[in-house]
Amino acid sequence: MRPVIHGGDIYQNEIELDFSVNINPFGIPEKVKEAMQESLELCEHYPDIHHAKLIEKIGAYYHIPEEHILCGNGASELFVAIVHAIKPGKIVIPVPSFYGYEKAANVTEAEVSYYEMKERDGFCLTEAFLQELQEDVDLLFLANPNNPVGNTIEDVLLEKICDRCREKKITVVIDECFLEFTRKKGFFETHSMQEYPNVIIVKAFTKLYAIPGVRLGYGFCSDSKVLERMEAVTQPWNVSTVAQLAGLAALKETEYVEKGRLLIFRESVWMKERMAQLGLKVYPSEANYIFFHGPADLFERCVPKGILIRNCSNYPGLEKGYFRVAVKLHEQNEKLIQVLNEVLG
Rank of each mutant, 00 (worst) to 15 (best):
176 E>Y: 12
29 P>T: 03
297 D>W: 15
40 L>T: 05
11 Y>Q: 01
204 A>D: 02
130 L>G: 07
12 Q>A: 11
208 L>E: 13
293 H>Q: 09
263 L>E: 03
269 V>M: 08
256 Y>S: 01
98 F>S: 03
64 I>L: 07
85 A>Q: 05
200 I>Y: 06
299 F>Y: 10
37 Q>W: 11
171 T>W: 15
127 E>F: 15
206 T>S: 14
339 V>P: 07
52 A>Q: 06
49 I>P: 06
95 V>S: 01
232 A>R: 08
117 M>E: 13
49 I>T: 01
323 F>W: 04
99 Y>W: 11
324 R>W: 08
166 R>Q: 11
276 A>Q: 10
64 I>E: 04
261 R>H: 11
245 L>C: 03
260 G>E: 04
133 L>S: 01
286 E>L: 14
317 G>K: 01
183 R>M: 15
37 Q>T: 10
188 F>H: 05
75 A>N: 02
218 Y>W: 14
148 P>M: 01
274 R>G: 03
139 L>S: 14
189 E>W: 12
129 F>K: 07
283 Y>R: 02
168 K>A: 13
133 L>G: 07
52 A>H: 14
19 F>M: 05
141 F>A: 04
323 F>Q: 01
316 P>C: 01
42 L>T: 00
68 H>T: 14
283 Y>M: 02
126 T>L: 14
205 F>K: 01
45 H>V: 10
52 A>D: 11
61 Y>I: 02
175 D>Y: 05
195 E>A: 10
46 Y>S: 11
329 L>T: 11
21 V>Y: 13
270 W>Y: 09
77 E>A: 13
314 N>R: 09
67 E>T: 08
203 K>C: 11
32 V>W: 05
97 S>E: 06
84 H>M: 09
277 Q>S: 05
199 V>K: 06
267 E>V: 02
344 L>S: 02
59 G>S: 02
62 Y>R: 04
331 E>I: 09
188 F>I: 03
86 I>Q: 04
307 I>M: 05
328 K>V: 02
170 I>H: 06
211 I>L: 11
256 Y>M: 06
239 V>F: 10
11 Y>S: 01
45 H>D: 09
339 V>W: 07
188 F>N: 02
335 K>V: 10
159 E>S: 09
101 Y>V: 04
293 H>I: 00
99 Y>F: 12
50 H>T: 08
292 F>K: 00
166 R>I: 05
241 T>A: 06
334 E>F: 07
232 A>C: 08
67 E>N: 13
290 I>A: 01
214 V>W: 08
215 R>S: 14
141 F>M: 05
189 E>R: 06
198 N>F: 14
8 G>Y: 13
272 K>A: 08
8 G>L: 10
40 L>F: 11
313 S>V: 04
252 K>P: 10
51 H>Y: 12
112 V>H: 03
207 K>A: 09
323 F>M: 03
252 K>R: 09
174 I>N: 00
129 F>E: 07
259 K>V: 09
84 H>P: 14
298 L>H: 03
78 L>W: 08
45 H>F: 15
174 I>H: 06
103 K>C: 15
110 A>Q: 05
284 P>Y: 08
201 I>T: 07
323 F>N: 00
197 P>W: 11
177 C>A: 02
9 D>E: 12
